[in-house]
Amino acid sequence: MTWILDHLDDIGYYTLQHAWLAALPLLLGLLLATPLGWAARRYRGLYTPVVAGTGLLYTIPSLALFILMPLILGTQILDPVNVVVAMTIYTVALLTRTVADGLGAVPDSVIASATAMGLGPVRRLFTVELPLAVPVIAAGLRVAAVSNVSIVSVAALIGVPQLGSLFTDGFYRDFLDPIVAGLVACVVLALLFDLVIVVLARLLTPWLRTGGAP
């Protein structure tokens, strides 16, 4: 316990590092997965290759992907960019199918009436289809967020500092306190991410907040 109190600064620094290493890929992943998911939906023939292809990327174990990144990006092994890109790949892998299925869950009647009122495909996507797909996309984002927070800690093994560094520190010094602190901080951070996404999704879908018709 005293170790934790003496090292609050370190824990804070690691938490911040961890937060952005997990959050930035989440945003980038969502930005990339949205057009991919839309295309998979729009052009039926693309669905299987896109979803299966991104799904395969998700099978690669994180440590292997972190180590292979320099080979692909030409970066140094210690560069945090490796982690950001790898985590973005995982996020895209998870969210592409979510976006495609979320857009697919928008009722045909809604799309037809939007079209009948003269909305072009682009306007319809941004003002009707994506807003209605928010609940499904948010659910996928929550899974991706929790998974990202957990996976980022592995990057401690390639020397990128974040909460995972507490695990390696503690293990190599045979000292349990940092490990417990790291585990707790990771779980809290994951819950925090989860909460933020839930709140954002609620704000974006005011029509779901009011009770059903009497």
């Binding site: 957990s150 592995v154 695990f167 990771c186």
Partner: peptide, 16 residues
């Protein structure tokens, strides 16, 4: 359990 990092769990288990 999804939120628990496997690396931390592994180290903790070995040490305990």
């Amino acid at each position: 359990l999804r939120a628990v990092p496997s690396l931390g769990l592994l180290f903790a288990a070995i040490m305990l």
